[in-house]
Design a protein around this nucleic acid. Sequence first.
DNA 1: ACTGAAACGGAACGCTGCTCCATTTAGTAT
DNA 2: ATACTAAATGGAGCAGCGTTCCGTTTCAGT
Lengths: 198, 198
Amino acid sequence: MAAEGPAGGSPSRSKRADAQRNRETVLTAAAEVFVTSGVDAPIRRIAAQAGVGMATIYRHFPTRADLVTAVYRHQIEACAEAGPRLLAGAASPFDALRQWIDLFVDFLVTKHGLADALQSDSDRFAALHAHFLDRLLPVCAQLLDAAVEAGDIRPGTQPYELMRGIGNLCVGRDNDPRYDPRRLIALLLQGLQRPHTS
Amino acid sequence: MAAEGPAGGSPSRSKRADAQRNRETVLTAAAEVFVTSGVDAPIRRIAAQAGVGMATIYRHFPTRADLVTAVYRHQIEACAEAGPRLLAGAASPFDALRQWIDLFVDFLVTKHGLADALQSDSDRFAALHAHFLDRLLPVCAQLLDAAVEAGDIRPGTQPYELMRGIGNLCVGRDNDPRYDPRRLIALLLQGLQRPHTS
DNA sequence: ACTGAAACGGAACGCTGCTCCATTTAGTAT
DNA sequence: ATACTAAATGGAGCAGCGTTCCGTTTCAGT
């Protein structure tokens, strides 16, 4: 997580310096290409942008999911870490859940095709799916449990199902004024809310 | 809609008989392949299954969407026609809406990858998306309007957004016991419902 | 039967994912 | 400083798929 500055511990020892450098170069290039062409961009294009061969990319990131994961690692982390913070600071657990979902949705919709990739049943993204789940599912579960505990929402909803549903709602063409996933997610949360008078 | 029997009007005059036959052959083959390999199955495979050349398929169905549309035409029609019928027969417009959505969801989840294709932003499925919308959006709008009119649900939800949301929720790996789109859709409908005391 | 046009099949092209290996280069021991 | 070794590299090569193009076959009307 820490910066790989000269004073800090070596980020991954036993790697040659040029390999380290190339790794960063590829990450930067991939990030740029992802913005313009989505996370489905041809490896060739990313390699060209980075000025390296394709094999270099495959060596550093064996699957496409590894590359995507690495590019968005910081943002996934930020989202994961926001969970407990929101829970501590919000007016109610339900509010915390809502705000966290907002963060999550913003993350998904601002990255071209990321939601699509996440829900794709293609093997090439299996690891991406797994990483998101590993990192964010516990956070979501904690928020959900707290909201149930507080009586804000009805019990019985599985975190996995909720996360996939939210991810699914974010899939598809971007910037369609007729479709804003946030509105539907708000509806979903509404349905989750327990009637005020129990 | 009617069968193309000998007594009925010619289904599409000015087509050669072998072309007519091949069209049917391709449709049958495509239906079979779609079941096993999803609507993304290679054209080559469908051609092989049908025992025809690829060009024959492209000539009859210029885009993949045309083929998919043709294969599922009957079921799309059935879904469209069920709308008014349900509205007339159900206990309330909201019930009709719920039942119609059930039909729609069943349709989507039983066809491998159909929901994925529908929401894909790839051009190759644009026509499929358009056809679904042309045929089903008015039906959904009618049900939605009736439910709003009856005071069952809050106003303000756009039919397009609802349909895309439902479609989106059906996207992804099939038969995952941890994820049943129907549960989330039920939640969505719950959120749509107006509180009983206005 | 004859013939023009419709329909056909599959080769061919372009694009992509992924792998393999000859070559280059960084780091180290002398 | 030089030589050596293993890590790292780059791009050619193979396979799969979508789509088009064209020489050949088959239908249908005379």
